[in-house]
Amino acid sequence: MPAQASIPLKLKELSNKRDLLAGGHRMCAGCIAPTAVRQILLAAEHPVVATNATGCLEVSTSIYPYSSWRIPWMHSAFENSAATAAGIEAMYDSLKQQGKIPADKRIDFIALGGDGGTYDIGLQALSGALERGHRFLYVCYDNGAYMNTGIQRSSSTPRGAHTTTTPAGKVIPGKQQFRKDLTKIVAAHNIPYLAQASPNNWRDLMQKTRKALNCGGPAFLNVMAPCHRGWRCKIDIGIELARDSVSTCFWPLYEIENGILKLNGETKQLADLKKKADAGDEAAKTKYGQKKKPLTGWLKQQGRFAHLFKPANEYVLNELVGRVENDWNNLVEKDGKLF
């Protein structure tokens, strides 16, 4: 089912809406996850019920007896945010059939999880819910490690990153594996809508949220969420790092709607420049070189990659840069095509 047109996003109107994730929660100052969640909830046009996997977002927003959620919100365990959302959505359907919820009353369901709770332990529940076709949106806020328990590697942690369980030492320079491409794993479920987004481009993230909630079936958003504790970076550069994750093509913005892959925002501009440059357009080549930021600059701002800039570890840096470049080239090829 194609995503239906919805009310356009206007800052003026949005600013009059109440934040559904209240201030006063205990996420770290400078954490980007709540920013992303606020944008997502602000984009919702119908009442929302959310489930949350164990993680920073869950713990810090629900420290008993307080809750920061102005919506019905439920946490159950680490591995089953998607399963809990599936259960709630099934209940909604049943109550509707029984006439206990009016036929025209629409409620949307959002399952939230970090990369640990999504890429790793929650993958089974996510896959099951996507395959069964529940009408819900799964949002992964991806900060690239288990930050809540003290920065352990996850399958989203980039190659070479230092975490407490992939310590960078004299012999082994950080994480030895490349990260898993979860967005593409989700795409293989052939669900109506999925996207990769970043909260620096709030309009893109909110439009994607609306498309996702209106797609009539399971949807998925993978959202970049820099974490200064785990990334070992300055506390106030979260949004800049999110922006540069896009402009370095580490985290391209794209969506897959009914099987068609489409690049969005800055990613689309970069891809168009790249295509022109590859076709021999010198002006485009210069502009592409200026606009696409080098990955090393992004990595240098993060202490978790500091060891990669030692001469002995140059090969890891090259592997990481090479993989990101390769993934980017492949993605550009797929723009506008059936995934």
Partner: peptide
């Protein structure tokens, strides 16, 4: 697999196991 308050155990093994020729694996779930 990460869970508080035992995270020092996997973190310790992550550093020590390679030194003694052992194997440390962080799995994707318990």
């Amino acid at each position: 697999y990460p869970i508080t308050p035992q995270n020092e155990i996997p973190a310790y093994f992550a550093r020590r196991m390679p030194q003694v020729g052992g194997t440390f694996i962080q799995s994707e779930s318990e």
